[in-house]
C-alpha cells in the first residue's frame, strides 16, 4: 500500500507545529489515543483504494486549536506520549519554533 501522510497543525509567525501521521504504518491500535493527556486524537475511517482503513487522526474538535491543545507536550520533542506509545512509529509531532 502506498502512503498517505496526514498533517494537522499550523504554520504562523511563531513557527510551525504539526501532528504527522503515516496512515500506511498506522494499524489503528489506538494506543496513542489512550496516552494523549488532552484526548486530542481519535480513530477515523479513511477510504484507501476503495477499502476502509481505520487510523488515528487529530479529532475534529481539536483540529482548530492544536496550538493550545498540544502546548503541554510540545517541549518534549521526540518523547511525546503519543509518539512513545506508537509501536509502529506512525505518529510524529514536528515543532519548529522560529
Amino acid at each position: 500500500m502506498k502512503q498517505i501522510i496526514t498533517h494537522y497543525g499550523y504554520s504562523d509567525a511563531s513557527g510551525e507545529y504539526y501532528v504527522v501521521i503515516d496512515t500506511a504504518k498506522c494499524d489503528g491500535c489506538a494506543e496513542c489515543i489512550r496516552q494523549c493527556p488532552k484526548a486530542a486524537l481519535e480513530l477515523v475511517t479513511l477510504l484507501v483504494d476503495l477499502e476502509d482503513k481505520v487510523v488515528a487522526a487529530v479529532s475534529e474538535d481539536h483540529r482548530k486549536k492544536i496550538k493550545y491543545t498540544c502546548s503541554l507536550c510540545k517541549p518534549e520533542k521526540n518523547q511525546t506520549p503519543c509518539m512513545t506509545a506508537c509501536s509502529q512509529k506512525a505518529i510524529r509531532c514536528v515543532w519548529n519554533p522560529i
Binding site: I4, I5, T6, H7, Y8, Y10, Y18, D49, K64
Partner: peptide, 10 residues
C-alpha cells in the same frame, strides 16, 4: 490518489 494531506489549525 492522495500521498500527503494537510489541514490547517487556525
Amino acid at each position: 490518489r492522495v500521498t500527503s494531506f494537510l489541514m490547517n489549525d487556525k
